[in-house]
Amino acid sequence: MEEVIDLSKLDKDFKYQVVREPGGEGLLSCFACGTCAASCPVREIDDRFNPRRLIRMAILGMKDRVLQDEFIYLCSGCYLCQERCPQDVGITELMTALRNIAVREGYLHPSFKAQLEFVYEFGRLYELTEFENKKRKKNGLPELNAVIDEVKTLLKEAGLSKFVEVKE
């Protein structure tokens, strides 16, 4: 709390940007009652993850911090906060909107980036080695291709390849 936030340095347009994003429409209705914060199961485990606080930061225009906040990915999508919010902020959907903005603006979380790179390169979340194929064969299963090119094509078409640092 020692930190002083200079409001003049924040992005005043960010709140409107969120409201324009599908799912983010309810952001500004929030009156900071705290219902969501006391509902959230993720929050129950770690005080750092707090939907009300995240919403506040978005309203104040703390764009960088919001888009880099791990919480937007840690949200379990349980909808508890959304169901109970008296102001219809639509928090769970708002999380999706924030993720979408983050991704679009290049704030993709490193863990997602790493996953994406795997999928891009191998067509799945891990690299298939000879060892696996041997084991499959032993159990009477067909061999698999180590690389799936169709997935690569799909990701390129979907515009996701731009997040991948390709080692071609």
Partner: peptide, 15 residues
């Protein structure tokens, strides 16, 4: 203007 936001325990500076 310096204000302590009590709900969020944040110190804010407004110009």
């Amino acid at each position: 203007l310096d204000v302590h936001d009590k709900t969020f325990e944040m110190d804010l500076e407004i110009k």
